Simulated scan of single mutants.
Amino acid sequence: MKETLGSGEKLEFEKAAMDLFQIQYKHNPVYRQWCDYVKGTPDRVNSLEDIPFLPIGFFKQKQLSIFKAEPELFFRSSGTGGYGQSKHAAYDPDFYDLRTQRIFEATYGPIQELCVLALLPAYLEREGSSLVRMAQHFINLSGDPDSGFYLHNLEALADKLKAKQAAGKKILLLGVSFALWDLAEQFPQNLSGQIIMETGGMKGRRKELIRADLHQIFKGAFQVDAIHSEYGMTELFSQAYSRGDGLFYPPDSMRVYSREMEDPFSRASFGKTGGLNIIDLANMDTCAFIETQDLGRCYEDASFEVLGRFDRAEVRGCNLMIG
């Protein structure tokens, strides 16, 4: 399955998910204990709907892995809010790099044609960010020598954006929301036709706004028709993208379902608000079946929207906004 996901070949999702459930039940002791606890053992799992989803908080408490050996590295969450860090074992970081590339390019085309400018100050100031690794990989792939990271030097970034826009170069400006807001206020400019992408996350730096209102600010400041969004987290090896309509479209390695608010073991109907459950086949070495604390709605075309977080849920660095 890793070869299929890496090559971009078409995957038979349901069969792959059922096979991966069997593997992870057998070899991931934490996931197996959870499945036993909720009576989701292999003899009871006959379809995708029967597969148990592991509450995402286990990534803070346990090392989730189908292997006994230590991984090459760990991706770590910010731990915003004092609830501790999630830790996601990465046994094959090169596969993560390749997967992020395949997913992005399936939506936006070749990265090598872009100037990638990453405005990710809060993520650059700590170690183990999967988002920073993804951005670094995109920067490396970019054919533009001006691609790179920006920490707090907004004026230099604004000058670079202006020069690239004037030269007719295609830009990906990837930024955490509070930093993009600072840029929008201090250095508004015409970036029409460019990809302005927020990754979520105010991290207590700015007032919380619903995503739609924040996007209106960005669209006005940068004179673009849409603000793009990335949905990702430490606990996932896959990402989903929104091109500005509020709907995220998962890649072929990922499916998102909503669960009933009062019954986490039942799926919510299409269009109904519920907690988001995610199957991420790229999490093949850890746990592919995750019950998140995000609220959202799922639709028949496999798209989904993110509406916020459960009450008392940890404030997460990647998704602080509601929208």
Rank of each mutant, 00 (worst) to 15 (best):
G40Y: 05
F67V: 07
L281E: 04
Y96K: 05
L276D: 11
A89I: 02
Q33M: 10
Q216V: 08
G168M: 10
K219C: 00
C287K: 03
T107M: 11
I196P: 02
E125H: 00
Y241G: 00
S77G: 09
R211A: 11
M233G: 06
D43S: 15
R259W: 06
P29T: 07
V176H: 02
L117G: 00
D252I: 07
G201V: 07
D92V: 12
C298S: 13
T41A: 07
A158D: 10
S253P: 03
Y249G: 11
G148F: 06
S130A: 14
F218Q: 14
F21Y: 09
G175Y: 12
V38T: 00
A106P: 04
M18D: 02
F74G: 08
K162N: 13
G193E: 05
L295T: 01
E235W: 04
L214F: 15
R309G: 00
K164E: 15
E127A: 09
F237A: 13
Q101C: 01
E305I: 14
L117D: 09
F187S: 08
S253Y: 01
L320D: 08
F21H: 04
A16M: 14
G274W: 07
Y25V: 03
D50P: 03
M261Q: 10
L236W: 01
S47N: 06
I227C: 06
A302P: 02
T286M: 09
E208M: 09
H215Q: 15
C318A: 07
S266H: 01
L180Q: 13
I66L: 09
L173V: 15
R32S: 07
E127G: 00
L276R: 10
A240S: 14
D225P: 05
N153E: 15
E70Y: 01
P52I: 03
R102C: 04
S147V: 00
F237N: 14
D294V: 06
L180V: 14
F248T: 08
G308S: 09
F237W: 08
G128K: 01
E3H: 00
I171K: 06
H215P: 05
D43P: 13
F59K: 05
A179G: 06
R205A: 05
Q223F: 00
G308P: 02
F222W: 13
K26R: 10
G6I: 01
K60T: 12
P29D: 11
S269C: 14
E155K: 15
F218K: 11
M197H: 06
I210Q: 15
K15A: 14
N190A: 12
L141I: 11
E314I: 07
G193C: 05
L73W: 04
F59S: 00
H215I: 09
V45T: 05
E49C: 06
T41V: 08
N283T: 04
K60Y: 13
R267H: 09
L157S: 07
G6M: 05
F248H: 08
P251F: 09
L307W: 11
G201K: 05
M1E: 11
G274S: 13
G79R: 03
F289S: 04
G168K: 10
